[in-house]
């Protein structure tokens, strides 16, 4: 059976693969490691805030039941080390500045 994610060139396969985080692994032997992975920088793993999704307001709310967007006002920023199309953002969000 044809599975779109197996198509090596179809853009739909990119979207699917972007949704599937590659498994954690130890680095490969240097003899087969792509050049593009030679200069990686370790980053701290982003932490998401404690939140509950409010089905009434259709937004994330904090412990006090208020929308995070409203309570934190402009004191959040969205940013990413992997910005935009390349996959799910892990570090957008609600960082207090």
């Amino acid at each position: 059976m044809f599975v779109a994610s197996d198509d090596p060139l179809a853009s739909a396969a990119i979207r699917l693969s972007a949704r599937t985080r590659p498994p954690d692994a130890t680095p490969a032997e240097s003899s087969c490691r792509p050049f593009g992975l030679r200069f990686l920088h370790p980053m701290s793993t982003p932490v998401r805030p404690v939140y509950v999704y409010s089905h009434t307001a259709q937004v994330a709310v904090g412990r006090d039941g208020l929308p995070l967007a409203a309570t934190m006002g402009k004191d959040w920023r969205t940013k990413g080390t992997s910005d935009g199309d390349e996959g799910p953002e892990e570090d957008y969000g609600w960082e207090e500045q």
């Binding site: 701290s44 793993t45 080390t81």
Partner: peptide, 11 residues
């Protein structure tokens, strides 16, 4: 981004 040996890494 890539996770190796439990560490998030960025190119």
């Amino acid at each position: 981004t890539l996770t190796e040996s439990g560490t998030l890494k960025v190119a």
